Amino acid sequence: MMKIMMDNETALVKEILKELGASKEDQELVAEATVDADLKGFTSHGLGRFPQYLISIKAGTINLDENITIEKETPAMALINGNSGFGQAVSYKAMQIAIKKAKEMGIACVGVHNTNHFGVTGFYSDLALRENCIGLVIANTDPAIAPIGGKVPLIGTNPIALGIPSDSYITVDMATSVTARGKILESKRKGLDLPDGWALDANGNPTNDPEEALKGSILPFGGFKGYALSLLIEILTGPLVQAGYGHEVTGTASPDKNCTKGDLYIVIDPSKFGDFDEFKANTEDFISQVRSTGENIPVPGDLEVKRVKEAETNGISIDEKLYEQLKRICDDLNIDLDSYLEE
């Protein structure tokens, strides 16, 4: 098993993108988001997902030249056309606009269409935390969840991330399915079976085979509750932001197709509701109450903090199949992959 340290992963991603003609800004943003995913343990959305972006670049579904276009705007909202740019770059810019507007208006909402897969949803809600704001991010994806009682996937795994600014790291980042599609893809790459209760095959039967799961559907988390939440997110990131929905959504799991998904970024400035330090103190007081109810009581965000510390110290693992994918990419670009890795 090979490993790569955080700084080397950043340098590797930037070097690959540079050779492919990406702008310096895009290199920085894609690298930061990719490493963030791996540090938090979302390896299915980090370097493991990176080869997908290169397929999109070669297919022309990621535009290396265009910048975002603000199509509609008020003091508290904006609708953005991503012009098929890197999802990471488009999303970063959308969140920065939402943060700026929230600091002026108290709350802001920015919708995005014509973008691309952006990695881990929580990376963007974290941007709000850095500015002492609450960040909420939702998105839709290629169909993966069949409606309750159905067999045909129609709804995406539709992630949601919510972060609360405080002295602790309080955040949740999850798919509305039992697992993200990226983890199914990662299991397929590694040749691993899926746990029970994750997916159905094309005939609606339970399956542990990732190949069959990708032909079938992923189950929503929590039965009807997860299904309902995923369905509503589909509307908020499809019709609302003038993006694709249902069968129209492509590009998040099919990198050679134009990406038609949508995103929604909501930011709240707590200081507009009252004294920010008081808000933060009360939040920490509540977290203390939660932890005092037993031994080792977890709070959303604890696991990510632990994973980041471990990954920063020990590096990020690269399995054999991913190594082979990256080796082919680097060899084509005359990049010495092994110089970035450690045994």
Rank of each mutant, 00 (worst) to 15 (best):
M2K: 15
M2N: 13
K3V: 06
E9R: 03
T10L: 13
S23K: 08
V30R: 01
K40C: 11
G41C: 05
G46R: 05
F50M: 11
G60E: 06
L64P: 09
E66L: 11
E66K: 14
A76C: 13
L79M: 13
N83S: 10
G87A: 08
G87P: 03
Y92Q: 12
H117N: 10
S125F: 03
D126M: 14
G135P: 03
T141Q: 08
T157A: 00
S166R: 10
S168A: 15
I170L: 15
I184Y: 01
L185D: 12
P195R: 06
P195E: 07
E212Q: 15
L214H: 01
F224C: 09
Y227H: 10
L231Q: 00
I233A: 01
L236T: 05
P239R: 03
Y245W: 14
V249P: 02
T250W: 11
G262H: 02
V267C: 04
D269T: 07
F276G: 06
F276T: 06
T283N: 04
E284Y: 07
F286H: 11
R291N: 07
G294C: 02
P298F: 08
P298S: 09
A311H: 05
T313L: 12
T313S: 13
L322K: 08
I329R: 11
D336M: 09
L337D: 03
L341Q: 08
